[in-house]
Amino acid sequence: MSHKTLLRTGPLTQGGTSPYGPLGLPDAEGLALPSGFTGRVVARSGHKVAGLTWHAAPDGGACFPDGDGWIYVSNSELPLLGGASALRFRADGTVGDAYRILSGTDLNCAGGATPWHTWLSCELGHRGRVFECDPYGARAARPRLAMGRFRHEAAACDPERRVVYMTEDEPDGCFYRFSPSDWGDLTEGTLEVLCGSGHWRVVPSPAGLLQETRHQVADARRFDGGDACHYAGGVCYFTTKGDTGLWAYDGQSGTLDRLCEGVRAITAAPSGDLYAARRSTQIDVIAPDREVTPFLRLEGQAGAELTGLAFSPRGDRLYLSARRGRAEGRTFEIAGPFRGCGQS
């Protein structure tokens, strides 16, 4: 079933029976999972992993194919020292390497993967930038200034319309799209903002030198703290911090719907299921029939945020981080019989 089923068939339904059954007792790390699923910590902030000291404040993340293995990248939401790091997994799931792919940037919160296998790391600071990073560690990261200078939170690529959607973490933030002059090259292009009429209008000065980008178009639609962003099946899903909303923008029809409240981060599985990290330390699965049921709970971690949700290329492992404040952070891998496992 298409992800668009979520958008078009009525309100979400809370409760019911999870496709994976009830949650079991928490393990030593506090993870409560359905039967058949296991969790492990693959990296801890301040501790070595494959020779690299894993960063503090882990946030947005994504997975990339790497031969028989795969790579998980993770941002660091630290001021001035933020950047991003990568874990390279072998085919058997062991960590073979860990390395930095971006350093010396400011408050790298979320971001997004591109269809050409690069990572867009977004700076949350004033006049923040988008950096395009090489998850394989072969090329230096580059700022993509045409994508605007504002409090960037997350980015999601829409290959059908050849645009990149972006969220802005301001109380009166906007929802943007960037149309590159050449798809696959983000050096130049046009930045637009979604307006109250449902139309997109060009932002006159993406650099925002004299006037901030969100104030340049009079009828720009406002969102209370744009947060996570993910594109799947024709729909761009994004969340808002201030009112804890989960939104769905249909790129083909140009319609925008609010699906539910209480969501922090979002990703999609090959099955068509969405996985939503709640403001509490819980992850729910939202099935294509719009039923919402618990999938994971992290117990004994009051006040922690679950971030960086991403599936491995085969869809058999889910990665996420749990962070509390600037210092404490753990990056988890959840393995098990996910629906759609092995699809690409």
Score class of each variant (00 low, 15 high):
169 D>Q: 12
249 Y>D: 10
339 R>F: 06
203 V>N: 05
116 W>M: 09
120 L>E: 03
343 Q>W: 10
130 V>S: 01
39 G>Y: 07
63 C>H: 03
326 R>P: 01
110 A>Y: 08
285 V>F: 06
221 R>C: 04
90 R>H: 14
116 W>C: 04
51 G>E: 13
82 G>N: 09
75 N>Y: 03
245 G>S: 15
105 T>W: 00
36 G>W: 12
109 C>Y: 00
190 T>M: 12
9 T>Y: 14
89 F>V: 04
22 P>N: 12
13 T>W: 05
231 Y>A: 12
135 P>H: 04
43 A>N: 04
251 G>F: 05
201 R>I: 00
203 V>L: 09
24 G>S: 11
172 D>Y: 07
103 S>G: 08
43 A>S: 04
162 R>S: 12
185 D>F: 02
117 H>D: 15
36 G>L: 13
8 R>D: 15
91 A>L: 06
214 R>F: 13
166 M>L: 15
46 G>T: 07
230 H>R: 14
232 A>K: 09
255 T>L: 04
328 E>A: 13
242 G>T: 06
343 Q>P: 02
135 P>L: 02
107 L>Y: 08
165 Y>K: 07
24 G>L: 06
151 R>S: 13
159 P>V: 11
270 P>D: 04
293 T>K: 02
32 A>K: 05
338 F>A: 10
79 P>Q: 13
53 T>G: 05
249 Y>C: 08
79 P>C: 06
329 G>C: 02
76 S>C: 09
253 S>D: 13
63 C>R: 00
321 S>P: 01
130 V>N: 01
186 L>K: 03
77 E>I: 01
61 G>S: 11
201 R>P: 01
68 D>E: 15
276 A>F: 00
246 L>W: 02
343 Q>Y: 07
121 S>D: 12
153 E>W: 03
225 G>V: 01
54 W>C: 00
240 T>P: 03
34 P>F: 08
45 S>M: 01
274 L>V: 04
152 H>L: 06
198 G>N: 11
192 E>I: 01
1 M>K: 07
242 G>H: 07
32 A>Q: 09
197 S>C: 06
120 L>K: 03
2 S>T: 15
323 R>N: 03
144 R>F: 08
124 L>R: 10
268 A>E: 08
254 G>T: 09
170 E>K: 13
324 R>M: 08
254 G>Q: 10
281 T>C: 14
115 P>Q: 07
139 R>Y: 06
84 A>R: 05
202 V>W: 04
303 G>C: 05
219 D>C: 10
88 R>I: 03
315 G>L: 02
301 Q>L: 08
196 G>H: 10
199 H>W: 07
25 L>R: 15
294 P>H: 07
312 S>I: 04
84 A>E: 08
192 E>L: 05
194 L>F: 11
42 V>R: 02
231 Y>M: 08
168 E>Y: 01
261 E>S: 14
273 D>Y: 01
259 L>P: 08
335 A>S: 15
91 A>I: 06
183 W>G: 03
285 V>P: 02
44 R>D: 00
206 P>I: 02
15 G>N: 10
121 S>P: 03
203 V>S: 05
129 R>T: 02
176 Y>V: 10
114 T>K: 05
46 G>S: 11
239 T>S: 11
